[in-house]
């Protein structure tokens, strides 16, 4: 018999029902995102859709990928990666939006035929 301390899983296993509840939340958030996209929110709709995407991926990371159960060093990698994506995406967009040294949109080289 192997002592429980030598197993590689976590000591306390959540019930399978927890995963089903998380999945139902993911489906509900997906439906909400889809319905909101039909509501013609204007320019905020990208922000709303990305906010819901962040909520959904947090659920996947914390529960399906067990980040909650494991040591913080794993979550640290996720946090640093996310910080990089946010900086890269927002600064590239900010650069394009605010730089005036070249025309904001290059003149088309010729209409695609």
């Amino acid at each position: 018999m192997i002592a429980p301390t030598t197993t590689e899983g976590s000591k306390r296993h959540p019930s399978w029902l927890r995963y089903v509840v998380i999945w139902l939340c993911l489906l509900a958030l997906t439906s909400a995102s889809f319905l909101l996209s039909l509501a013609h929110l204007g320019a905020v709709d990208v922000v709303v859709a990305l906010g819901i995407a962040v909520a959904k991926s947090s659920l996947v990371l914390l529960f399906f990928m067990h980040l909650l159960e494991h040591r913080f060093s794993n979550a640290m990698i996720v946090l640093v990666s996310c910080a990089l994506v946010v900086l890269l995406v927002s600064l590239v967009a900010a650069d394009v939006a605010t730089r005036h040294t070249f025309p904001p949109a290059p003149a088309p080289l010729g209409e695609p035929d």
Partner: peptide
Amino acid sequence: LGSEVLLFSGLFALYAGYRTMY
């Protein structure tokens, strides 16, 4: 997985840049 996120983040950055442009 972190390195995979970096791989995709380049494409997300291109999307953000070109969406701001057009």
